[in-house]
Design a protein around this nucleic acid. Sequence first.
RNA 1: GCGGGUGUGGCGGAAUGGUAGACGCGACGGACUCAAAAUCCGUUUCUGGCGACAGAGUGUCGGUUCGAGUCCGACCACCCGCACCA
Length: 859
Amino acid sequence: MTDAPATPTPRYDFRTAEPRWQQAWADGACFAVPDVPPADARKYYVLEMFPYPSGKIHMGHVRNYTLGDVVARYKRARGHLVMHPMGWDAFGLPAENAARERRVHPRQWTYDNIANMRAELKRMGLSLDWSREFATCDAEYYGPQQKLFLDLLRAGLVERKESWVNWDPVDETVLANEQVEDGRGWRSGALVEKKQLSQWFLSITKYAPDLLAALDTLDRWPERVKLMQANWIGRSEGARVRFALPQPVDGIDQVEVFTTRPDTLFGMSFLAVAAEHPLAAAAAARDPAAAAFVAECRSMGTSEAAIEQAEKRGFDTGFRVAHPFLEGVTFPVWIANFVLMEYGTGAIFGCPGHDERDFEFARKYGLPITPVVLPPGADAASFTLGDHAYTGDGTAINSGFLDGLDVKAAKRAAIEALEAKGIGQGVVNWRLRDWGVSRQRYWGCPIPIIHCDACGTVPVPDDQLPVRLPEDVTFDKPGNPLDHHPTWKHVACPACGKAARRETDTFDTFVDSSWYYARFCSPHAAAPLTAAAADAWLPVDQYIGGIEHAILHLLYSRFFMRALKQTGHVKVEEPFAALFTQGMVQHASFRGEDGRWLAPDEVELLADGSSRHRDTGEAVAVGRVEKMSKSKRNTVDPGAIIDRYGADTARWFILSDNPPDRDMEWTEAGAAGAYRFTQRLYRIAENALPRLDAAGEEKASRDLSRATHRAIAAVTEALESFSFNVAIAKLYEFTNAIEGAKSASGAALRDAIGILARLSAPAMPHLAETLNAMLGPGAGLVAEMPWPEADPAMLKAESVTLAVQVLGKLRATIDVAVDADEETVFRLAEAEENVQRAIAGKPIRKRIHVPGRIVNFVV
RNA sequence: GCGGGUGUGGCGGAAUGGUAGACGCGACGGACUCAAAAUCCGUUUCUGGCGACAGAGUGUCGGUUCGAGUCCGACCACCCGCACCA
């Protein structure tokens, strides 16, 4: 919104300096590492989540890769052999959307985008080993992935099962959840139906117990991510209960439910099944009204959020089930839109008294609500439920043989009784479902399977891999182009030689991103992984990416690593030893008088705080600060920022603004301020040059040296704890100290500026090189210099300032020697005039002294 | 709906249970300049007071403690995820 800073001639010219240093690093191969690190090397693998090649890098990328680069450069300076690779998550829907909308081939579109984004990333000055680059759409990558899949298949980790998808009957295609808007396909506008397809699944549920238990070993992961994963895996103890149908329906004589509350079986008032349940199908076959209800559920979409947020609705099938313990008592069977076929058994028993959802359902349909758990302290005779179910602990009532037991004991007793009668048992249930990897799309890794009428599903033999995507496809028809291709899918069965068909589904792109970090260790090998490389480099020592990947991508990767271990590819189990999740980059949004969204560079901020359109002059409404998005036009192009201010400025601002795990707001003023700081640093060094050999005052020199060592200690500590914004604040403080040290010696000044350069280098690598070179030509590259060490002797203070409180309120501060004894401290504190006034002659009841911190008098 | 998080001056934020607001941005005052930009010096949580000081203050309400931004409980607002977006 403002023009380039109008410095007539900026003294530090980033436009020439940044490319020059990038060239120097490339010439020195500063960031290249071998596939197999030397035995004595301290390896460190830094990885940021690789980008989807959408066409241009966005500020989220700049933030992500800046954070990773700070870590990489810092660890390298600390003497580690740092691997820091980059690649492209290049398969996926947007390329096909582009193909349909703009008639450009997905391959062309993708590789063009990659070329663009690679050039943009290179301008950021990241310390990447570009020799490891690959895209997941390279046959060199997806071919080995097909090999891995077949290894998993042989190891029994792949299954073929039916599952439900969102089907667009007009486009004849499966829709992603995000492509369903209000129950209609985003492109066709057709009502979406659920449809059952036969699909490939990876058996992640086999690893559910281990994926859960091993979370405890991930001590450098954020607690909240581990919590989210644990909840997602969702281990719950409960019971399976088989309810008999006194009058069987289509040969179905029982319904099995899973429940975590077998203690509330006596409070049952109905049984409910999912719309996809066989009993629902049986009801639909008999009763058009039931069929209509099932059809309606089918139009609801497959996402859990959609299902659970929908109004709770049901349909009474007229079927009845017998209570497991009460002779002759039966309950109605309903079809309910909130019962998930994927979870448990697709059927529940409803106990409205002690489950909120069942309560709501029973209220709506007038089903009985019987309390069977008495809250502690409540009176059995008078207890009634109010407007809510009671889900807490308590004592069983109205429950036959369970009466008087607490919830835990009642659960145990109910399970024992079910097992004794042979109509149920205690089980552990997992929320986690197997991972469906089939996608009915062109731009993905082909699933290397051949369908033969005689032999069934036959793996493509190793010597016929990779199964390459055909180039000559068209997007003018609805459906999957691979399926339409005239020749591609027609092959001979590898087993019997008869005519057979290729699998035309491709893999979910999460498969691509579940092992790319391992492929980076030997990116160009023929085999998917090279054990010597992968076992040496893995796990990733620091992984950095968005919180939005907290569950799926990270869980799939953890599973994949285990599967790769099981199939003998690696020894490592956990892919990411440490995880850091960054926040989003946001920007204010703007709207013109007619309500249309305006881009930031169309808006001019006026001095009085209002805004107007740069060209038309119309008033502009400044909206909320929101996640940058194309639809709201509140994006800022990193390329334009780097043109205007340079990469160091962009990196510096993004690091300085706020803690990296929080959402940040990109502001022009902040970027301009960072730019001014780069110029200021350069000026300080330039002004210091003539003084570097001068003598100075001893005290000023010592103070500057102390400040230097305090800065080393503070910046190091901040970097270690990912408090990059604090590290930057400490660098500002240090810079202020250098500028204030007018009479320090040249030696102390040279030392201070040299160390300032090295401490700033992870954030501003180009300017750091320039500063370092100014101090002495031939000094070498900062990129190859060790991290400075703080001298502990220089960190000790001689005296400290203590706060003196009376009754917890600050009344004075005193300076005391570091080693002053307690009585002296109390005497000095009490002698303060203001403290005396606060005590006001009252007797001192208690004196508290925390050395180096505080004195508190209680009167 | 379910699961997870965040909340501190005008703004971004700092703060092992121990001086709330470091550092930066912005604003204001001053210097330099014919003038502006850039740069430099200073002020900047709010209220009262000339001042020394006093009172209030970390989303809201309550609790623990000599002492709470920090720990505990309830609530409010916003953000992320919910299995075919990546």
